[in-house]
Computed example of a mutant assay.
Amino acid sequence: MLFSSWQDRYRMRWERFYTYVRTTPCSVAECRDDAAFFTAPPVRDLLDLCEQRSELSNHLVADLANHLTELDPFRACLCGLLIGRYGERGAGSADADRALADRFLYTLNACLQSIELICERRSIPVEKLLDRPEALPHCLCALFATDPEPAMASFGMGSLATGLLSRLAASRPLRDRLRQEKQVIPFCEGFGELFDPALVSLPGLLNMAEEGTVILLSLERRVGVEAAFRQVDSNFLLFTLLQNLFHREGLLERFGAPKFVYDPVLDKLSRHLPLSKKERVPDLLEDNAGFDYYAPSALRADGCFDILHLVWGEGSPCTLPQLDGKNLLLLAPLTLPRRWGEEFILGSHPQLRPAATITRLLDEAEVASLTARIRTLNLSKTGNQ
Rank of each mutant, 00 (worst) to 15 (best):
E364C: 00
P264Q: 07
E220F: 07
R75I: 03
N109F: 08
R338K: 13
S57P: 00
A142Q: 10
H349T: 03
S93I: 04
G341I: 01
S27W: 03
G325W: 06
R98T: 14
L105R: 13
R9N: 11
C318Q: 14
K259P: 00
L136E: 04
T376Q: 13
E120Q: 11
R122V: 05
T146S: 15
E314N: 12
Q52R: 13
A101L: 05
A145R: 12
A35L: 09
L284T: 15
R177G: 06
L266P: 02
Y18K: 07
R9W: 02
L2E: 14
C77W: 00
E30H: 03
K277W: 08
E226Y: 01
R353A: 10
G224V: 03
R248C: 11
F344N: 14
A161L: 06
T319H: 14
R172M: 06
F291I: 07
T319E: 13
D45L: 08
R121E: 15
P42D: 06
A145C: 05
I215K: 11
L269W: 02
L117P: 02
E193Y: 08
V214H: 05
T23M: 00
W312S: 11
A368Q: 14
H272K: 06
R339L: 15
R339G: 09
D176R: 15
G163P: 08
I185H: 00
R254S: 11
A135T: 10
D147A: 14
M1F: 07
A355Y: 00
T359A: 10
P186H: 05
L81R: 09
T146N: 13
G315H: 08
L199E: 06
S114I: 03
G290I: 07
D363N: 14
F191D: 12
M152K: 13
D95C: 05
K326C: 10
E116Q: 14
A29P: 07
E286P: 00
G250Y: 07
P350G: 06
T19F: 08
L47K: 08
P186T: 02
C318R: 15
V223F: 01
A289G: 06
Q52N: 06
T107N: 04
E314Q: 08
G158M: 01
L238Y: 02
P274S: 07
C79T: 03
T162E: 12
S171H: 04
A228T: 05
E314L: 13
A365E: 11
L81T: 01
A65N: 01
L323T: 03
